[in-house]
């Protein structure tokens, strides 16, 4: 686990009354919370709870219908392009070029982020920390699920962003690969990078420094796993609490 965030530091992400409507459907409904630098922050909730919509607004991919969000010092509604240059984003579906090799994908994203002469060093770093060293010449399309996931995170972090968004990164990956991926997430957070992860696996809740639980677009719980447990005064695990919340709202 990363160290507890210092109170004085500016928040790296701050949502204020964030709303997203698609037609008559409100996907995200007046959500407010903030994320401290260097923490592993979880956005949890069942499918359709608004996790992906929230994360896409924070990355400048969707415009908020109402409210604001500051990410890495820029307003996502006003300066989405500035936000994009400061963050890393790993989409839910594998979004890299399957017909490019591991090295080519990394070099492409390095170039897109303007790494210049730093590219070679950064590429070696990414392959080392993401455990992709042997795979440089392999086509990305033939990698295993876990390897694809680590490559996607590597590409998202080529430009050393201060905050990284991972949308359902562990979906459909075998347990061993999932464990390795969590190890890598913790390592990056320990280096000071804020890691924001959405998941619908409730058993992953204990892995977060802090988490926000969304249900039907609304924020229903916020805090460290222990705090959330206290809020609901439950004897059971976080998983039990979330299943109960989900059943209540269903």
């Amino acid at each position: 686990m990363s160290a507890a965030a210092p109170i004085a530091a500016r928040e790296v992400v701050e949502l204020r009354e964030l709303v997203k409507r698609f037609g008559s459907v409100t996907a995200v409904d007046h959500v407010s919370f903030s994320i401290h630098p260097g923490e592993i922050f979880g956005i949890l909730g069942p499918n359709g709870s608004g996790k992906t919509t929230t994360i896409r607004m924070l990355c400048g991919l969707l415009r908020p219908s109402h409210g604001t969000a500051l990410v890495a010092g820029a307003d996502v509604a006003v300066e989405p392009e500035r936000v994009k240059s400061r963050i890393g984003y790993m989409s839910q579906a594998f979004g890299l070029y399957r017909d490019l090799t591991v090295d080519e994908n990394l070099a492409f994203y390095g170039g897109v982020y303007n790494l210049g002469p730093a590219l070679a060093e950064r590429l070696a770093w990414a392959k080392r920390v993401m455990r992709l060293d042997e795979l440089g010449g392999r086509l990305s399309g033939v990698l295993s699920g876990g390897q694809k996931q680590r490559l996607a995170l590597a590409c998202a972090m080529m430009h050393a962003p201060e905050v990284v968004f991972l949308d359902e990164p562990t979906a459909g990956v075998d347990p061993a690969a999932r464990r390795l991926f969590w190890t890598i997430i913790r390592e990056r957070a320990a280096e000071g990078v804020t890691m924001i992860v959405t998941t619908h696996y409730m058993d992953e809740a204990e892995r977060f420094d802090r988490l926000a639980f969304l249900s039907r677009g609304k924020l229903v719980a916020l805090g460290s796993p222990t705090e959330v447990k206290q809020q609901f005064g439950s004897e059971g695990s976080l998983e039990d609490i979330f299943v109960a919340l989900q059943e209540r709202d269903a």
Partner: peptide
């Protein structure tokens, strides 16, 4: 369609 555009448009390109 293949999902690579989403990853592309979140870059500063």
């Amino acid at each position: 369609e293949t999902g690579t555009l989403e990853q592309l448009i979140v870059t500063p390109l």
